[in-house]
């Protein structure tokens, strides 16, 4: 069950990538909205760094968006 879900999610980008050239994406002159700071995938790097540190210290998971890292002997 879990493996099946994982395979699906892993394949998804490949499927999107393969079809991307046909139906996805924009021309350079259509990037007005995508170029805005708030459309950046890592919009606020400082917020993310602070959040990662909190949740790394308090929960059993880390990373995913970026490296899960070592970094502190947090309590």
């Amino acid at each position: 069950m879990m493996i099946k879900e994982i395979k699906l999610v892993l394949l998804l980008p490949l499927i999107i990538g393969a079809t991307g050239c046909v139906s996805l994406g924009v021309e350079p002159w259509q990037r007005d909205l995508l170029a805005k700071d708030e459309m950046s995938l890592n919009g606020s790097g400082v917020d993310s760094a602070l959040d990662d540190h909190i949740y790394f210290s308090k929960e059993a998971s880390s990373g995913g968006k970026g490296f899960s890292g070592g970094g502190c002997g947090c309590n």
Binding site: P13, G20, G25, G63, G64, S68
Partner: peptide, 27 residues
């Protein structure tokens, strides 16, 4: 302790209003 991470990512602009990212990480 040592931590070794591998991170594979794929980013796709869907249309003028939407962008998506997919990552797989192994740690």
């Amino acid at each position: 302790k040592t931590t070794t991470d591998i991170l594979l990512g794929f980013t796709q602009v869907i249309n003028r209003r939407m962008i998506s990212q997919f990552n797989y990480s192994y740690s």
